[in-house]
Design a binder for these strands. Structure first.
Lengths: 166, 166
DNA sequence: TATTGTTATACTCTATAACTATA
DNA sequence: TATAGTTATAGAGTATAACAATA
């Protein structure tokens, strides 16, 4: 309440929380996690985004690129750069929608499904190392909190009936 | 234990957890968080990494670039690209160590401290929006879990007595 | 005119290796 | 020879805008 060496409690509180605020921790540790997952996915010829893409196709079935982009929260232009090599490798196929010839319906192939399983196993190993210091209870708590966060952020990506997975 | 439509429980468990595993959630939501924090920091002329850098100097006092890089978990070569514009803007100063003329000791200036406070406020606003759906208890739980994770990952960056902040 | 998908360009962040100056 | 810092180059990921084909 006085003195020139005594900052206000409010400002000091913010200053003290800078490096350990949940937002900055999430951003920086997320970067670290992404690096590890990328190494795991790269080992089987995928990127994390391509893994997410294949997993969405597996969980929700074939869909158009617009919907795929919305569920992933990425621009359609980025989607193309993810899809092209996957199609070239036969992990998925793009087929014109007979009802609306503008649309390309993306299908997961059997080869793609098998590759997805390999990548999932590699990812699991990477996560076990990443979260080695956290017990099962802590991992589940973290998962639940992040799921709640994702659900709350989803509307920003989706327009209406879509349900983005991130 | 039978049938061609019945995958093993283990594989199926991994497959089901793909898109909602704590690791992928952390990686993808971290990317989202980084985007928002970057917008906040950019508004006051900084990047998230530069914010982290200034905050470290504020919390731990002047230090050499090697130590700074270790605490941030980045290569010294990246550090230079972060430091140069900050020094040009007068937010910090590099001074040769008289005892070891190879070392450059980095000091936070008063201007830098004030800019750090502005950035911290902008970051706080961004985080309030980002975590709007989480109550105080959930934010604190998340913060604690991420702090535990950071502490466990620290040894990967530091060599010995260093204590990286991320 | 609006929508689906594509292409082209640029920007941010990071990793790696080669370089200098000091020790 | 080893270390502190610097520079140069390349790569991954993403955002933006302009474009072609179809509705």
């Amino acid at each position: 309440m006085s003195g020139d060496e005594q900052p206000s409690t409010t400002t000091e509180g913010i200053l003290k929380a800078r490096l350990s605020s949940p937002g900055l921790l999430l951003a920086l540790l997320g970067q670290s996690a992404m690096r590890r997952l990328r190494a795991a996915h790269n080992a089987v010829g995928l990127t994390p985004r391509q893994f997410q893409l294949l997993a969405l196709l597996h969980d929700h079935g074939p869909m158009g690129q617009r919907e795929l982009g919305k569920r992933m929260g990425v621009d359609p232009s980025i989607l193309v750069t993810l899809l092209n090599p996957l199609e070239a490798d036969g992990l998925l196929s793009r087929e014109r929608d007979a009802a609306d010839r503008r649309r390309h319906i993306v299908h997961l192939t059997d080869v793609g499904a098998r590759q997805l399983t390999r990548a999932a196993l590699a990812q699991q190993e990477a996560e076990d190392l990443l979260f080695a210091a956290l017990d099962e209870r802590q991992r589940e708590d973290l998962r639940r909190l992040l799921l709640a966060l994702r659900a709350s952020l989803a509307p920003a990506f989706a327009s209406a009936e879509e349900t983005p997975e991130c």
